[in-house]
Nucleic acid binder design. Structure first.
Lengths: 203, 203
DNA sequence: TTGATTTACTAAACAGTGTTCAGTATGTTT
DNA sequence: AAACATACTGAACACTGTTTAGTAAATCAA
């Protein structure tokens, strides 16, 4: 008899329901407003039930972070169509900035908020981030094989490129971009990205 | 009779005491652990009293942010000794990274945490940040006057440089640097900064 | 089918959070 | 001495994450 299998299926169903509710509230009202009680209310279960499916609040956000990386990965798929490595690198930057602009809350969860990282103990690997970074490093390395960035270490250059884009995005997301003059603020990330490409094209 | 003056002095005294306690707890135990009740306990007043001196919790963190910028400004003083603008720009980057490394909590408050920015309404000016950014822009502009960065807009280039350093610092502070290989992680910011300088020196 | 056991869930409690406000006690002024 | 102003408190309100004793239902064994 398949009662065991059914039970397992039901377990995963509620676990998925909890995550769906968390995602809804998170995307509707943001991180601060996503509480265990809010999630419980939405699925009409008691708060305690949530702890039968997730260790704590942080692990719910870790699950949402993984969803974010999944979306992110899908968006990056378009890069497979770009043959030239340097063109692929440029397209990658644009996809990165587009993802951040369209999913600022997911971006925050993936790269800024501490909560989802707390479930990883000190030296445990952060797989999702690692894969994304490795991919960037590999693209930079390919550029190098094609003659670009001859004097640079791929990992170091990847890190600098990532830092620049991440810096632009977080200055925006966390409200620090108002220091930029009015006429440039609206498209400052686009301007910044072009300036970065300009720098990269001269080495 | 100077009762009015004395009262005012006493007001500022307690206001300063609250801020000092907030600073202590913030630097000892971090942002999350700095609560109104913790502050009240430390100065042996009731929680309600704090609201007679500060509008809300955010405005306390805004005051702490200003302190952060004050420290930051003092550290930047050493740049007055650097005559050549490009050397000054390089020294500025090093001071920036040094400040972030030595005062990660202040840095977080100044450039990442949302709370202290909430006291500024939507289009109100963020003076502390504005002054710092303007200073960076002016140094880049001076470089340009000395023949460097000929093809770049000073504000845009200042923004890119700031973004790169800010990105490196926040990836570190918010625990996203573990993707960098072990052998480079320890001094990855130094390596990244050198790579940035390398980029800047080729345009 | 009955009794034992496991599973799934809830309600309540604990300890904490920011914030407000009626009441009090002290200091100042008339 | 009475009136008023100021400074502060303590309790309350509405939240937060998390734990746990208790319950009701489902499953299993005899």
């Amino acid at each position: 008899m398949g009662t065991k299998e059914r039970k397992e299926r039901e377990r995963e169903e509620l676990s998925g329901l909890i995550l769906a509710a968390a995602r809804e509230i998170f995307l509707e009202k943001g991180y601060e407003q996503t509480s265990i009680r809010n999630i419980a209310d939405r699925i009409e279960y008691s708060p305690g039930t949530i702890y039968l499916y997730y260790k704590d609040k942080d692990s719910i956000f870790h699950a949402l972070q993984q969803e974010g990386f999944s979306r992110f990965g899908q968006q990056m798929m378009v890069l497979q169509a770009v043959a030239d490595p340097y063109e692929r690198l440029k397209a990658m930057g644009r996809v990165y900035l587009k993802f951040a602009k369209e999913n600022p809350d997911y971006y925050d969860l993936m790269f800024v908020i501490r909560a989802p990282m707390k479930v990883l103990d000190d030296e445990e690997c952060w797989n999702e981030g690692q894969n994304s970074f490795n991919f960037l490093v590999s693209v930079v390395a390919e550029c190098k094989e094609h003659g670009r960035f001859a004097c640079c270490d791929p990992e170091e250059l990847a890190y600098v490129i990532w830092s620049t884009l991440h810096g632009m995005v977080t200055l925006d997301i966390r409200g620090r971009c108002r220091v930029v003059s009015d006429e440039k603020r609206e498209d400052i990330e686009e301007r910044g990205f072009k300036a970065l490409l300009h720098l990269l094209s001269h080495i």
